[in-house]
Amino acid sequence: MENKKSILFAIIAIVIFIALFTLVEMGLLSRQYMGLLVPICVNIILAVSLNLIVGFLGELSLGHAGFMSIGAYAGCLFTVYANLPPFIEIPLALIIGGLVAALFGFIIGIPALRLRGDYLAIVTLGFGEIVRSVLNSLKIVGGSGGLKGINSGMHKSDYYIVAYIVVIITILVISNFINSRHGRAVKAIRDNVIAAESVGINVVYYKILGFVIAAFFAGMAGVLYGHNIGILKPATFDFNKSIEILVMVIMGSMGNIPGSIIAAIILTVLPEALRFLQDYRMLIYAVALILIMLFSSNPTLIEFRKKIFGKKEKGGK
């Protein structure tokens, strides 16, 4: 079963890659959609990594943009100062960004041991705000004016391939992690901490591990983002960015990785396609968040949903 799944995954990944590659090479994609390829990759990585914390670890993190910005600044500072050939520089920058973000994931994971739920959510939120205001006042990284002159040194179409490879690695690592012994331990902690602890699961270790892995990939996403856009501003990585990632995870349904991927793609492409609804974007997100939560958690509404979609849901299971 597991083997079949991984073969299927490999086939899908290769087919999508070939399809995208031919589209890009033959110039069939409009400029507008070409420009969306890297943001889609970045958002998929962010959503999948946040899903590890929210969906599988069962803790709400409101500071994912903080990890992303730390990774972005670390990786981009490296490429600005190191002048290596791009094919060595970019992978190194990705790893550096990921590692620095992971270090902060570890630091945030420590309060996560003593705190749960709402308290932890506020600590992660506070962490995001701290990162933003510190970056704002640091002169080395350009302060609020931003870090300028970031250049991947690669041809655009090569950079797409790099981004695509990072996405595949992220999905592979996180979905394998979740289906492994460690992942089952993480899910056990989510479902019942006390029960998990009493069967000998090391809660401390797994909670920190979850935060570290998620932060690592968020940092890589930040590096990808920075080299694509060329300038990093602290204001980009505010609370709204964290919420945007959270909306992707919730819309794709918590604890569901393919869901996160699809939601990330839709929520990146849709705002471009529906430019005329730009002003209503946040309103639509807000209403969607409330409705999804009501329909998935209220007993009467669950019944109502089952009446309408009853057959489909039964068929699915």
Partner: peptide
């Protein structure tokens, strides 16, 4: 009110939704 007995995570996310709304 509809989420009175739901998980704290669901309520928190709804509250964030209301704030954005």
């Amino acid at each position: 009110k509809p989420l009175r007995n739901a998980s704290p995570l669901a309520v928190l996310i709804t509250a964030i939704g209301v704030s954005y709304f």
